[in-house]
């Protein structure tokens, strides 16, 4: 557990140094619990069947979030994400998508 804490701290630090952090999206990515599954660095998902999101196309990210929330997309493990999308509105999705797309 200690190693994990260190790794997470290092990942957070790496993000801060890369300068790609845009406050709104970064905060939302944590507070809306995205990072619980997709990893604090957005490229270390908790299960290998979950996607890495860092550097993904902004428009694609936004569409997936919208479709999973509305139920239009309901394949794979989207049921796991639909449960939390009730907390995220469309403006927040756009912030998160923009921030994720800007990550290396």
């Amino acid at each position: 557990m200690k190693n994990k804490t260190f790794a997470l701290a290092a990942a957070t630090l790496a993000l801060a140094i890369s300068g790609a952090v845009q406050a709104g999206g970064a905060e939302l990515y944590q507070s809306k619990t995205c990072w619980s599954c997709h990893g604090k660095d957005a490229k270390s998902p908790v299960l290998p069947i979950y996607p890495k999101l860092a550097g993904q196309n902004e428009a694609y990210l936004l569409n997936q979030m919208k479709d999973i929330k509305s139920g239009t997309r309901n394949n794979g493990q989207s049921a796991a994400m639909k449960g939390v999308m009730g907390m995220v509105n469309e403006a927040e999705m756009a912030e998160i998508a923009k921030w994720l797309a800007g990550l290396k």
Binding site: M1, T5, T33
Partner: peptide, 22 residues
């Protein structure tokens, strides 16, 4: 130590969310 994993969603206080998500 184990609770750190839980806290990512249930918060470090274990209080969950008024939205009812957690």
């Amino acid at each position: 130590d184990v609770f750190e994993v839980c806290s990512a969603c249930h918060l470090t206080e274990g209080w969950g969310e008024k939205t009812g998500t957690f």
